[in-house]
Amino acid sequence: MTMTATLGHAHADPHHIGRATEHPGPAPKRIVTAYGFWVFLLSDIVMFSCFFAAYAVLVDQTAGGPKGSEIFEQRNVAIETVCLLLSSFTCGMAGIAADVRNRLWFYLAMAVTCVLGLIFLAIEFKEFADLVARGYGPSRSAFLTAFFSLVGCHGLHVSAGVLWLLTMMAQVFAKGFRADVLRRMMCFALFWHALDIIWVGVFSVVYLLGGGA
């Protein structure tokens, strides 16, 4: 009964939402892995959204401490942003190099990605260290708590990404472009690009919106 009901509009459904066509069976491993990681990334973004929400709620609770406009340095943030954008580009290049099995370009692109990530982390670390040294650590006010947590959470993700990146390079070195290595590489690229998207939110909401008057 169901079959006749669904077969009726077989061609009126190009997006397969009703899947009038027969389901073809299990998807290939590459799709399964990437899709699972995609779902993980969405959950990670939901986690970030909580820190964004906390920041939005607490941004005015300075408790007599500094406001955002008094402590943010746009120049640093601009450099950080450019680093991440370029690293996203080089990460994409590394992905292409892996797909065409070109080791040299792969190592080169990954190394550049790594260096750009490390520069980003260094700048962020210095910003945090300076703030703490001036007495504006996360314990100073709820605003600083939310600021340090949101930006720091992104920084932790970038650090984990760098660790993962180095592991990926070691894996390609030891195992070559094996199918499972390529799948992990694809997940890594998704991760790195997703961190960039979150950074767009961070610099827009925290530094630019919060840095204005």
């Binding site: 998807a27 590459r30 892995t33 990437a34 899709y35 390529l182 799948r183």
Partner: peptide
């Protein structure tokens, strides 16, 4: 592991 052979499947995110 071939991605593009199966027309019926959605492609992997990022591909």
């Amino acid at each position: 592991d071939q991605t593009h052979m199966h027309v019926e499947h959605d492609i992997a995110p990022g591909d």
